[in-house]
Design a protein around this nucleic acid. Sequence first.
DNA 1: AAGTTCTTATTAC
DNA 2: CTAACGGTAATAAGAACTT
Length: 339
Amino acid sequence: MDYFFAQIEERENPRFKGLPLVIGADPKGGSGRGVVSTCNYEARKFGIKSGMPISRSYKLNPKAIYLPVNMNLYRKVSDAIFLLVGKYSQKMERVALDEAYIDLTGLPKGYGGALVLAKEMKKKIYEKEKLTCTVGIAENKMIAKIACEEVKPDGIKVVMSKDSESFILKMGVEKIPGIGPKSRKIIENFLKKRDVSIEEAKKINKEDLVFLFGKRGGEFFDKFRGKDESPVNEKKEAKSIGREYTFQEDVRDSKKIIKVFKSLISLVCRELKEKDLRIKSVVVVCRFEDFETHTRQTSFSEENYSQASLYKKSIPLLLRFLTESNKKVRLIGFRVIVD
DNA sequence: AAGTTCTTATTAC
DNA sequence: CTAACGGTAATAAGAACTT
């Protein structure tokens, strides 16, 4: 889906259309601590982007419209959309509220057939939900995703199998899904060169990539060559459930910290009950004022994971952070590993 | 020595 | 002047701990 959260808000409130619109944390006149979730294309003209600190967004354009994230609404819209999308294939993999892969292997008319389906699907989504999206069609998930990014918004792009490798050649290595800022830097340092293209990265031996990145290195080697064998598969059950919270201001007051911490446990506990899940262990997260982030984990075997027993197990872990450091606390989190 | 659990780093949306 | 930065979840690697 194109600029999903912001596009939904435009649909709900057409007077926002044509104006810069930012969905995310409250900017609080420039002192907000959150980030931009999504923004529309008008906001992007000011240099605002997803993931950017909201304080920076506010500096770039204090007059933009700032709206909070209404996740319940977006989830509902997402469900309606992917109910439609799912009709086009037996196999669909939802990777986020606004993104999914469908497997169209074996269509009688190949890429031409896929293109026809994509057009139909876009039309149907627009008719039913008044929202635009972009479709990438290719022989594997990675190329389809990159193709999609290239033609946003409201686009369709087909990359024929024979073109997979050449399609990405001149792009920067960071276009490869799985290569983020750190991996990019490692590649730059290795080649002693900045802005490395995929073409240049292909000159790195497989052995060197494995030395640099371990198991992922071997996958990068294939990805640089347009290859990606990962299958389209439906999402499985969650392996962990957690909640975290960043304080308005860094704190040391353990009363305040524990109060918030208990509310996080309650939220997780409610979800556990709803889904009737057993848990393997609990994880407590603490981020200090300087952004140093630590976790403490402990196994949890009791049959009965009432709120009280979760408190009993996890509060001591939390208190350890406070005794082991004098720093103020920025964020705390609580997570359970389910089995 | 092998198996399991814990911690950190990185990525993605 | 520089860094600034959410919440949720997965995965990989290596350390630490058990058996």
